[in-house]
Amino acid sequence: MKIENLKMSRLDELESQSIYILREAYTQFKNLAMLWSIGKDSTVLLWLARKAFFGHAPFPLVHIDTGHKISEMIDYRDKLAKELGLDMIYGRNEKAILEKQTFPDGKIDRLSCCKILKTKALQKTLSGEGKRYRLNQATGKYDADQSNEPYTGVIVGVRADEEGSRSKERYFSPRNKNNDWAVVEQPPELWNQFKTDFAPGTHVRIHPLLDWTELDVWEYIAREKIPVTKLYFDNGKGQRYRSLGCFPCTKSVESNAKDVEDIVNELKSGKFSKIAERAGRGQDKEDDGGLETLRKDGYM
């Protein structure tokens, strides 16, 4: 065998490490779920899972629906879930949505809105205290889920380059009973030996994409031809989304990128090569530019 044929590219190395992490998570956690935010990162994660498990996604995909998501996101979610036969679950903070404890309609700020609609809903959905809705592949509709067992391992698509506190994460990062992230107390993690032992009541967040950059993600989407929602591309009016979230807090950016290739160029040398991805996210700016407060409570 010729050695020069056996070299791995940066994307190959990132892919291999992510697959290793996903397989470790799958063998070590009985109640495992993957958070799917419908965005490009967690869609790459879904793709990596199918690679790791030879075409299968052998755990439920959980989406936290704030009721304020851009509507194309939900359409895309259900379309892909049916096509790939995914075990799709969603949860939401129904009470808050009903009582309009939301931004900007309710009298609360962005951070509190995030806390109530995302963090709280996520906590309750993961712990099983909140209602879960599961896609019935036979009818194509969501039914109330019978299982309320807590998930002990949760796979999340965060990346270290997104913002400061995420750059401090471990691949396997413990969360205590109250979902808190005790940053200072994080156990060591070395040589691909991860935290897979945990006390009852706690859970572990698993971050297979930690070492990926935004550019890596788009280059991988291009290489693997992964379908992503149209919201990332020029809507015909010179506007597209760079990062997806709730419509009141996510701004589109001016861009004529009409396909994945255009986006890769834009990030490599074009107009976004020096602008942070989450620049269009309102909640990041309210807390001195850090998501740390939200994330300590369990925000992704």
């Binding site: 270290a160 380059d161 913002e163 400061g164 401090k168 950059t213 740390e292």
Partner: peptide, 21 residues
């Protein structure tokens, strides 16, 4: 620019390893 955690900035020390690219 790197010490992103609040405790790190207030104490002027790095607590946990940051990754940057």
């Amino acid at each position: 620019l790197l010490d992103a955690l609040k405790d790190e900035q207030s104490q002027g020390i790095t607590i946990d390893t940051a990754r940057c690219f």
